Amino acid sequence: MKDTTIACIFDLDGVLVDTAVYHYQAWKKLANSLGFDFSHAQNEQLKGVNRMRSLDKILDWGGIVKSQEEKEELAALKNTWYVDMISRMSASEVLPGSLELLQDLHDRDIKIALGSASKNSGLILERTNLTHFFDAIVDGNAVTTSKPDPEVFVKGAELLNAAAEDCIVFEDASAGIEAAIAAHMAVVGVGEAANLPGADLFIKDLTGVTVQQLIDLVAKKKG
């Protein structure tokens, strides 16, 4: 069955797989090495934010000033620890409902893109056996600005040859929600509604999400 009325763009971390725990562990290790601690609440503020902006926030929280060269070295160190962790990921870490929805969209010939701030998305998709579902991958290696700038989603739609009004973004971070809204796309907030203002639909995870539900969401959004 072919359906070209919608296109779907998925964030990666916290939507399809849970790598947030590894980001947290790596950032916490870095903060501890600099002499201060790093909390889960602070980690929430880094969702959807690229590596250098995240580092700037963490250094601010620790009251530490570093040169640009030093910051690049710290970011690289954090990434080394993080990559070591995600290199041991497996398909068992795909979040509930993700595989079923991706398969359903794929079976319906609905175009799928990744829209992630991660520069390690290729490795994560490979380790979790999700690569083959994606018609386009836009990640931190392909954009110059991070969310809440809409660049990642705009590029995703362009690669899918889809109009913005036909796209649905799946996001678990407020910065990503803002980016999707700025891109004039429908957006599904994955997680707690209170943390995702502006989303058109709120879900705990991708379990039970149907293609028809998504088609109806786009139709309603168009008015």
Rank of each mutant, 00 (worst) to 15 (best):
E126Y: 07
D139R: 13
G189T: 06
R88I: 08
A113D: 01
D107H: 13
D139L: 08
K155P: 04
I112K: 05
D149R: 04
K119L: 10
R88W: 11
S67L: 09
D104R: 11
S116G: 13
A157Q: 01
A113Y: 01
T128H: 02
L105F: 01
S121K: 08
I177L: 02
E100D: 10
A142V: 12
S92L: 12
A175V: 09
I168Y: 02
G189M: 04
G140A: 06
D84N: 14
G191I: 02
A136K: 05
I110R: 03
E151H: 05
A180P: 00
G191P: 00
L114G: 03
L77Q: 15
A175C: 08
H184T: 10
E100I: 06
G62K: 00
N141P: 02
A180D: 11
K71R: 09
L123S: 12
K147Q: 09
K119D: 01
G156M: 04
K119Q: 07
A91I: 06
L99G: 05
K147W: 04
V138C: 11
W81G: 12
R127S: 14
N79C: 06
G189L: 10
P148I: 00
R108D: 11
A142Q: 09
A180C: 10
T128A: 07
P96L: 05
I124C: 04
S121Y: 09
G97D: 05
D135F: 11
I110G: 01
K119R: 15
S116P: 00
A91K: 15
A183S: 03
L114Y: 09
K155F: 06
A117S: 15
S174V: 03
E126Q: 07
L123A: 12
T131I: 15
A136D: 01
A173C: 06
I181F: 09
N129V: 11
A173Y: 10
G140T: 03
V94W: 01
L95A: 13
A157E: 01
P148D: 02
E178L: 13
D109Y: 15
I110Q: 02
N141Y: 04
A182I: 06
A179V: 02
V190D: 05
K71M: 11
N129T: 08
L130H: 05
E158S: 12
V65S: 12
V152S: 05
C167S: 09
A182V: 00
L95G: 04
W81A: 13
K111W: 05
F170S: 01
W81L: 12
T80P: 09
A75L: 07
E93V: 03
L74P: 03
W81S: 12
A175Q: 03
E151P: 09
